[in-house]
Amino acid sequence: MTSLLHEQRLADACEAVRQCGARSVLDLGCGDGDLLVRLASEPQIERIVGVDICAASLQRLRARLEALGVKATGHVELVHGSMITNGAAFKGFDCAVLIETIEHIDPDRLSVLERTVFAEMRPRTVIITTPNAEFNRLLDVPPHRFRHPDHRFEWDRAKFQRWAEGVAGRNGYRVACRDSAGCHPTLGGASQMALFAVAAHHAGSVQAREAGRSGPGS
């Protein structure tokens, strides 16, 4: 993806985080930290945790943060590990972002990701972006190829929306999908974004159950 489209995608993601009002953010698959270093300067964000399975990427991110005068401690924490395991360790965040990460997971493992993020971590908001396969022709990507050799799939907008709506319905979220990183009149954006938010009725039932557990006789 060109640098301009990459910058637009990051700007879209930052704006989505601002709009949801998150004070704590979990960056799953943070890589070298293109999004995380931007979020670290957002005044309303009090805590950011970046998680990635690549130790070398996290080391590069630490160097970037130190160059900016940001220590990877306190309100910024980096964790070496998988984003599809140990979800209970990352409960309680306002927002989780997965920027161009799900396409690196084998499709038959997406159910594990869904359970980990939406059932175990259960942030109030989840922001996911992934390449829009329809846009590939504008990037001169042949029909039988993906944009990156590590991609396991690339979906068109209809398939991504069906997947997102299924995830939302199964886990008590509502979801809206939109174009990201450009907006061709017929092919959409280079990326596509799903914005998940815990459904109000589901959040209320969870709070009631928690109150019941901590009430008299518990």
Results as ranks from 00 to 15, higher is better:
Gly33Tyr: 10
Arg38Cys: 08
Arg64Ala: 10
Ala96Asp: 04
Ala67Asp: 14
Ser111Phe: 01
Ile105Val: 15
Trp163Tyr: 13
Ala72Val: 01
Ser180Leu: 05
Arg137Pro: 00
Leu65Met: 07
Ala56Gly: 09
Glu66Asp: 13
Thr73Glu: 15
Pro131Lys: 06
Ile105Trp: 09
Val167Ala: 04
Gly215Asp: 11
Arg213Pro: 00
Lys91Pro: 00
Arg147Cys: 08
Tyr173Ile: 02
Ala11Gln: 13
Pro149Leu: 03
Asp27His: 05
Gly169Ile: 04
His202Glu: 14
Ala89Glu: 15
Lys159Tyr: 14
His148Tyr: 12
Ser82Lys: 07
Ser82Phe: 10
Gln44Asp: 10
Met121Tyr: 09
Thr73Gly: 11
His144Arg: 04
Leu98Glu: 12
His201Trp: 05
Ala158Pro: 01
His144Ala: 11
Thr125His: 15
Thr125Glu: 12
Glu103Val: 07
Thr101Ser: 10
Met1Leu: 07
Thr125Cys: 13
Leu187Met: 03
Gln59Gly: 12
Asp106Glu: 14
Arg124Val: 11
Gly74Arg: 07
Pro131Leu: 06
Cys177Glu: 02
Glu7Val: 01
Val70Leu: 09
Ser41Glu: 14
Phe93Trp: 11
Ala133Pro: 02
Pro143Ser: 04
Thr85Pro: 02
Gln59Lys: 14
Cys14Gly: 02
Asp12Arg: 00
Gly29Lys: 08
Leu65Arg: 04
Leu39Trp: 09
Gln207Val: 01
Gly188Trp: 02
Glu165Gly: 04
His151Cys: 10
His151Arg: 10
Phe135Glu: 01
Leu61Gly: 05
Ala96Gly: 06
Cys95His: 01
Leu39Ala: 08
Val25Gly: 04
Phe90Thr: 00
Ala176Asn: 09
Val141Ile: 14
Leu195Pro: 03
Asp140Tyr: 05
Arg137Thr: 10
Ala181Asp: 09
Val175Asp: 10
Arg209Pro: 00
Ser3Gln: 09
Leu139Gln: 05
His80Arg: 13
Phe90Val: 00
Thr116Tyr: 02
Ser191Arg: 01
Val117Leu: 14
Gly81Tyr: 12
Ala40Tyr: 05
Cys54His: 12
Trp155Asp: 08
Glu7Asn: 10
Ile45Gln: 07
Asp12Met: 04
Ala13Thr: 15
Leu5Arg: 03
Ala119Val: 13
Gly21Met: 06
Ile84Met: 15
Cys54Leu: 09
Ala168Glu: 04
Gly169Lys: 07
Gly172Ile: 02
Glu210Leu: 15
Gly21Arg: 06
Thr85Ala: 13
Ser205Asp: 13
Ala63Ile: 06
Asp32Glu: 15
Val126Arg: 03
Pro43Trp: 05
Glu42Tyr: 13
Thr129Asp: 06
Ser57Pro: 00
Leu35Pro: 08
Cys183Ser: 12
Ser82Arg: 14
Ala119Thr: 13
Glu100Phe: 11
Gly87Thr: 00
Ile84Ala: 05
Gly212Cys: 12
Phe146Arg: 10
Pro149Met: 06
Val70Ile: 15
Asp27Asn: 01
Arg209Met: 14
Asp106Ser: 03
Leu98Asp: 04
Glu42Ser: 11
Gly31Trp: 00
Ala63Pro: 00
Gly166Arg: 13
Gly217Leu: 11
Leu138Arg: 03
Arg178Ser: 11
Leu138Ile: 02
Asp34Pro: 04
Val51Gln: 10
Asp106Lys: 03
